[in-house]
């Protein structure tokens, strides 16, 4: 069994509990042990770097130090925003000795230290790169045949690019589609797959965010998708919770379920809908999954 340190992040404790449940289920079925970091703290989301850069940095440094202290070398984050924050904070400390020293001065007040040794993965990156698409395909017992999915990357899964990430994977990535095809789903062309969901603009600039969400939902709807599949709690909540408001604002009638990729993977690997947290959506996914035969036991 391969073991990774696991950083769930704040939204997976609450709004995105179904992501947590399904991620754990998928990992278990693939023989991967995700060990939650003991006493992790918030990664700073997007609001921190608006207030203070070093503050944003030290929040991530503490989590990475906790990983190092536990003797592990690799940490996995399912939330794209957490992933981006942790991986860039890590890179900055690895590149800049002064910054690392400054962070260690602060960490020391909490009885911690960080040397820069940890590798940060997005959950999807870990599954694709370390487990491998073929190995995943080989474990599928319930292919999601006939389920038409709009694969939604959003932003931080691929942007800003990290060292070693090819331009192809920034401007025209395929790994998410490949993963969904490996579990038997029918990936529809979704032109807006890399376009932003508005992120925290839903709080700070509602009009802009609703317009951006409207565009995405329209694009997904026109592509003939049964549902949108995502790898980020913020995207999921924006697209799902504010769908009713988009409908009101734009006179639309979207009823587009938005699920996590791990929920579909879990089903394909033989888990029950309940085991992957199906049922906690606001726009119900159960009927789409069931009528396609995808979720039936």
């Amino acid at each position: 069994m391969t073991t990774y340190a696991y950083y769930p992040g704040c939204s997976l404790e609450t709004m995105a509990a179904s992501y947590h449940v399904s991620a754990t289920e998928v990992a278990r079925r693939l023989g991967i042990d995700l060990v939650e970091i003991e006493d992790w703290n918030c990664c700073g989301a997007t609001a921190y770097s608006q207030v203070d850069e070093l503050l944003a940095q030290v929040l991530c440094a503490r989590n990475l130090a906790l990983v190092e202290q536990s003797g592990r070398t690799d940490v996995v984050a399912p939330c794209s925003a957490c992933f981006k924050n942790l991986s860039f904070a890590n890179l900055h400390m690895q590149d800049d000795g002064d910054l690392l020293e400054h962070m260690n001065y602060a960490l020391d007040a909490d009885g911690l230290a960080y040397s820069g040794s940890v590798r940060v993965h997005h959950l999807m990156g870990m599954l694709v790169d370390e487990v491998g698409i073929d190995a995943i395909r080989a474990r599928v017992t319930k292919p999601q045949e006939g389920l038409r999915v709009a694969v939604y990357y959003g932003c931080q899964l691929v942007r800003p690019h990290r060292p070693g990430q090819g331009m192809q994977d920034v401007e025209d990535p395929r790994f998410f589609e490949d993963l969904m095809e490996a579990i038997g789903a029918d990936v529809v062309p979704f032109p807006h797959r890399l376009r932003c969901c508005g992120g925290s603009l839903i709080v700070t600039s509602r009009k802009a965010a609703l317009a951006m969400l409207h565009e995405l939902l329209r694009s997904a709807g026109e592509s003939g998708a049964d549902l949108i599949v995502t790898a980020c709690p913020l995207c999921q909540v924006n697209l799902e919770l504010y769908q009713a408001e988009v409908n009101r604002e734009f006179g639309a009638e979207f009823k587009m379920p938005v699920v996590y990729f791990t929920q579909l993977m879990g089903l394909a690997l033989g888990a029950s809908p309940k085991q992957v947290g199906i049922g906690s959506e606001i726009v119900k996914a159960g009927s789409v999954l069931a009528c396609r035969g995808a979720a039936t036991p």
Binding site: C155, Q156, R159, E171, G199, S205, A208, A209
Partner: peptide
């Protein structure tokens, strides 16, 4: 009004 999507940066 920036959503921090990094499209411009790329």
């Amino acid at each position: 009004t920036c959503a921090s999507c990094f499209a411009c940066t790329e």
